[in-house]
Amino acid sequence: MNLYEGNKGDRIRIKEVAIEGVMRRRLLDLGFVPGAIVDVLKKSPLGDPIAFRVSHTTIALRKEESIKITGELIQHDNE
């Protein structure tokens, strides 16, 4: 699954970041590295962007980017 498909409370382990160039570097710097664990926090009121927690900080990504970051669902928080 990709990050964009994640629902609030999902915990995803990143497998691949299929983005190139400056944006890839920025994402890596922010902690979106393969192996990293990402929590899906919440969608913006209009559905996009989505806020994720990665290495203890909250980062919002647009659909264009989050759809290209794939990983596996490792936990779902049913609150």
Partner: peptide, 9 residues
């Protein structure tokens, strides 16, 4: 201090 992991990089 609240997000040391990323900051340590």
């Amino acid at each position: 201090a609240t997000s040391l992991e990323r900051n340590l990089n």
